[in-house]
Structure formats: structure tokens, C-alpha cells
Design a protein around this nucleic acid. Structure first.
Lengths: 347, 347
DNA sequence: TCCAAATATGACAACGCTGTCAATAAAAAC
DNA sequence: GTTTTTATTGACAGCGTTGTCATATTTGGA
């Protein structure tokens, strides 16, 4: 049961515990043959350093905290972020502590700060929408708690972050719809406090303007990033005539909601209506027809974020503070060329 | 930055550190007024015990490990389990350490054992399919690592566990289909090594037998619990005549795959074909038509599992070793009464 | 009032590691 | 062959708690 300690290894290898410590921590200035001798003893005994002791002595916990909104984020996103961070952790010898919470909770900031102190994590990873919670970020900075932000929009100079080109990806997707012959394009925006998602709206606007297409105000709907809100927006967009020939939604869930309503109303996809989403979640592959979407390399981003964090912890002088990842458009069956509505046979 | 230590509190309250320790740990034999005095000092200074020191001294980490398969479980399930365990953690003062892995990995057992030692977690929560990995469970037991199993099927006497009545829920769902007039019912089974899911197959068989309906072997398909495998099974079931009038899938993903194929083949749901899933995941609400499914109280189960674990850690003599939760059938739009195929108009 | 028992508090040694700094061994320069 | 420099190793003191055991202090009974 009881694991061997550093003393056991030291005794076995006939060196001091400090030398064992050096080997374990890959410190320089250990002769090769000593290192091998110690390593051999470690292997023989199956020694694993006691993290608590190490933490206590080194005043570091080797723990990363991942704080995220569990009530508004899709589970696929959450899991991808977890995996990405985890991948970086295993490389750097960190362990991952998670702390789901509700971003609408009034005590949010206290909860995060409390968690940080209680669990003694060395640093935090903040996915959206927490990454744009200015007050929280300021508090963390004030308390010298290192953190990295995923897909932030504001105050980029102040901290570590990893981004995607949401805006230009949304631009590209909109252009793709325009190339397919659509000009009557509606947009379903996400939660307004989820700023990364609002960038997508801007990209849509950019594209429409660059193609000199009119943006009809009644074809811009604000959803809540959920399937149900997508349904609501879908009803509002599709019940009236004229209706758009294409709907671009700020995320896949809302796009699926729109598709669901379209099916119910007997509107064929993609013949009568093209639908595009964003995120390329599992849902995009699993809905019918399979949803055209924009793939964000969430996992790679999360890994890069954690990499950045660990690097900056190790070498605080490091100037490499951010990375930007490119999105990729995934064309599936929910989008197609326009057909004039009065040419269709279904109604 | 640097938090106050127990020394600071002791000095502030003019008592020894040991007395502060007693108050913090709610130990007996502290006079009421002393306790209040100390508590006041703690509040004043905003003292939080240093977990690493506590762990080192008490030889406990106050950490729970959640090890799960990240490649075959749906993210919704994973997130629900995390939340449930988390809920129990916050009550009991534990923190949650996660460790996703691939169950197909040959080094699985070593990886879990390594993780346990490295991270020094006090105990583990094992969701399926790990909960039925007999070899792993034996290893953990042999190493005196406490753990609780979620939805296990085998060796129930040997350990803590939390279960659902998968089999009888599958029975009920099948009966529901039979009551709707279906007799030509197919079943899509999940990964054979995911035993909890196989129980659902047994429930299906139970119901068919109790209704004296024949089980056609070519209408039992073995999937891999994924959407794509559901599509494959759907093709196999729906391309030939006669085809079933209802398909019951072992999970929602596969059910969605079946629906997708049905749509492609022009088979209307539920008019021509009823489809039922299991798990009541987000996907069930988000697919079209909305999927009839069986709701497992995953989060409540995970919480109960962790509760059980913490209780048994505290009072090892405790005899309350397991709990069983009931599933609930959620009727949605993907199931309906049978209509004879030659009466339908669509083909 | 005094003494035993119960209750409350404190001193001090772990816990297993890392950081600091001194001591030694090896290499390089003279 | 010395001396200087550099590389390698070790002794020892924390890190902030808890556990053990000894020492007050209070309580209750005679």
C-alpha cells in the first residue's frame, strides 16, 4: 500500500535524497552514471513523488483549474476543452481540476477566487464566456493568479489568450452561401454576453456588405445559443413571407433548432432552405440533413492555451502571449444552391 | 498574494495552532467561546487551510478521481457524471480531478493505477464501461484504492455501486411500442463490452417474450453505440422488406442514426416507422422528430455514487453499499401507432 | 474543601519533499 | 604539479498542517 519515499530510493541508490530529487526533477548537474543509478532505483522500487509534499515544499500545486460555465456551454465543447487542456497537462506534469459553475450566478467571482484558493491551483484556464468577464479577469490579475483565456474578445493586451478567426470564418461561410446563389440570408445570433459568438454576427455583416446585399433587420434574430431558442428564431423567420432562402446560425444548436422548425413546416432542406451552423459539434453530423458548419479546432486551442500558460509560468519573461487558430468550413447536406420559391413543388 | 497560515490565525486568536486546527476540522473538546474566538480570527484573516500541508500531514488528499472513457462515451453523459460527482464533492469538501482515457488502450490498467498514485486521489469514481472492467476493479481492490462503480453489471457484491433498472426500463419501453400496436420491432444493441447497455437488450427480449412476439434474428443488430453505427444498422434494417415498424435502439445516438437513414430513404417517422432511444440525451430533444427515449437520472446517480464513496470512507463499517435509481420513459414525436405499410401514401 | 475524572489546550515531532548553501570531486588553466 | 574554476553531491532547514502525548483547567462528587 504505502508507496516508497524519496528516502527509500536514496538508500537504494546510495546517494542523498537531494540527488534523487534532482533526477526526478530533471535538474542539471547530475553525472550521467549517477542519474542512471538513481533512475534504476526509481524503476526498481516503482517510486512516484508525493505530490502533496512536493507542493508544500515547492509552493506550487502542479494543478490547473478549469472553470467553465456548465449551464450554457454545450457538453461537446466542454469535453473538448477538457481534453485539450488535459493533453497539455500530461506533457507538463500537471493535473487537471475542474470546476463547473453557472455564469449567471451572482457570486461568480467569489466562487472562482474561493475555488482557486481552496484548491491551490497554480493557474486557471478560462473558456468563454468567462474569458470575457472583465471583472473576473481583473480580480484574478489583481490577486496574481495566472490564467489563460480561450476565445476572448476584449482587453487582449492584458493577458494570455488563444483565439480563432470567428469573424472571418463567419465571413467566409456567408460568402459561401452567397456563392451558392443566396441573397436572402438571415442570421441567428447567440447570447449577447457571449462575445466570441457575437463576432460571428459581425463576420456575417461584413460579407453581406462586401457583396452589396441588403441586411433586413427582421432577418436578424437574437437567440440564446440553445436549441430551443433556435426553434423560436426559426418560427419567426420562416412563418412569414417572403422568407429567407438561407439561414446562418451562430452555433449548431440553434441551426438544429431552425432545421427542426423547417421540417415541421414542410420546408425542404436544402432545396427550399439552406441552413448553416457554427462549431461543427457532434450535433452537426448527427442532425438531418447533416449540417454545414464551421469547425473550430477547440481541442487544439485548449491545448495551446494550456501550453502557453505553462510556458509563461516557467519563463515569465516569455513574450509569446497568444495564438490564433484558423477555422475550417465543413460543407454538408444542409446547404445547396438557391431555387426560387415559386419553382418548388412541395407547398 | 500569500494566504494567511494557521500560525497567523493562532496568533490573532491567542491560542495554539493545534486549537485552530481543531476548530477548522470540527474536532470535539474545544470550549465554545474558544471556538468562537478562533472562528472570528479565521473570518477576519480570510484563512483557508493549505491543502498540500494538510494532505501531507493527514495522509489524505481530499481529491476524488473521475476516470472515464472519453472516446466512446457521449459528452453529455460525461458532463452529467462530472456535475453529479462535483455536487457531492462540494458538500464533502473534496475536489474533483478528472482523467479521460481510451478504454481500448492496452495500458488502461496501468494508466489508472499510475494516475491514482501520481495524483494521490483518495478514491475513484468509475463510470461504465470501466465499472465493469473486472480486471481493473480487482487491481484497485488489491491496492486498497476505494472506488465506486456507476451502472455496473458484474460482481455486485464486491464493491460500492449505483445502478439503474436498465433492463426493466427497456422492458417498459418495448411494451410501450407493443401497446402502440407494433409487433415487428427491431432492436439495435450497443457495444458488447458495455454491459449496462447490453442489459437493455435483455429487457427488450423479456418484453417480446412476455407478449409472445417472435424475435427475428435479422432484426437484432449490434452497433457500436455511435451515430454512424446506428446509420449502418438502420440501412441493414430498412433496406429489405418486410421491414420493422418500430426500431428500439440501445442509445440515442444510434437511434438518431436510424432516423437519419429513414429520412434519407423517405420513410416517415412516426407514420411509417417508430424509433425509440435510450438515455434521453440532448440529442433526443434536438433531433427531428424529437426522440422518444428513456431518461436515466445520470447526474443524481453520479452524486449518489460519490455520496456513497465519501460515506464509506468516513465510516468504513457502513453497510449501505448501493443504490438503484429508476428510469423514466419520455414519449416524444418519434413513436406512434402502427399503420400498415401498404396503407401509407409516401412511397 | 479537596481529589479524581473529564475536558480543554499546547509543545513538538512527524509528513516527504525542495531550496539554500556548503563541501567535495573533477576539469581546466597555469 | 599546483591552483583556479566548474561540475557534482550532500546536510539541513523549512513548507503548513495533523497526530501524539503531556500539561493545564474545569467539573463533579465525596
Amino acid at each position: 500500500m504505502s508507496s516508497p519515499t524519496i528516502d527509500d530510493v536514496a538508500k537504494q541508490a546510495k546517494v542523498s535524497i537531494k540527488t534523487v530529487s534532482r533526477v526526478v526533477n530533471r535538474e542539471p548537474n547530475v553525472r550521467k552514471e549517477t542519474r542512471e543509478k538513481v533512475q534504476h532505483a526509481i524503476d526498481l522500487l516503482g517510486y512516484t513523488p508525493n505530490l502533496s509534499a512536493r507542493r508544500l515544499a515547492a509552493k506550487r500545486s502542479f494543478l490547473v483549474g478549469l472553470v467553465y460555465d456548465n449551464f450554457h456551454a454545450t457538453s461537446a465543447y466542454v469535453v473538448n476543452v477538457q481534453c485539450g487542456v488535459m493533453a497539455s497537462c500530461s506533457q507538463s506534469g500537471y493535473e487537471l481540476l475542474i470546476h463547473p459553475l453557472n455564469v449567471d450566478n451572482a457570486t461568480l467571482i467569489n466562487e472562482v477566487i474561493d475555488f482557486t484558493h481552496r484548491s491551490q491551483v497554480d493557474c486557471l484556464v478560462l473558456p468563454p464566456p468567462l474569458s470575457d468577464h472583465t471583472h473576473l479577469c481583473n480580480q484574478l490579475a489583481a490577486q496574481n493568479i495566472p490564467f489563460v483565456r480561450l476565445s476572448p474578445v476584449f482587453n487582449l493586451n492584458d493577458s494570455l489568450y488563444v483565439q480563432t478567426n470567428d469573424r472571418s470564418a463567419a465571413f467566409d461561410m456567408t460568402m459561401k452561401l452567397i456563392e451558392l446563389g443566396h441573397s436572402d440570408i438571415a442570421f441567428v445570433a447567440g447570447r449577447p454576453d457571449h462575445y466570441a459568438v457575437s463576432e460571428r454576427h459581425l463576420g456575417f455583416v461584413d460579407a453581406m456588405q462586401s457583396a452589396a446585399l441588403p441586411i433586413r433587420e427582421e432577418w436578424i434574430k437574437i437567440g440564446a445559443s440553445t436549441f430551443d431558442s433556435g426553434k423560436d428564431c426559426g418560427v419567426a423567420l420562416l412563418k412569414n413571407t417572403p422568407r429567407p432562402t438561407a439561414i446562418f446560425a451562430g452555433n449548431d444548436e440553434m441551426a438544429a433548432g431552425v432545421m427542426s422548425i423547417a421540417h415541421t413546416l414542410g420546408i425542404r432542406i436544402p432545396e427550399d432552405l439552406s441552413v448553416a451552423g457554427f462549431d461543427d459539434s457532434d450535433l452537426a453530423r448527427q442532425s438531418w440533413p447533416a449540417l454545414t458548419s464551421v469547425r473550430q479546432p477547440v481541442q487544439a486551442m485548449a491545448k495551446a492555451a494550456a501550453d502557453l500558460l505553462f510556458l509563461s509560468l516557467k519563463t515569465p519573461s516569455n513574450t509569446d502571449l497568444s495564438r490564433c487558430f484558423a477555422c475550417e468550413i465543413i460543407l454538408r447536406d444542409s446547404t445547396g444552391p438557391t431555387i426560387k420559391i415559386n419553382e418548388t413543388a412541395n407547398d
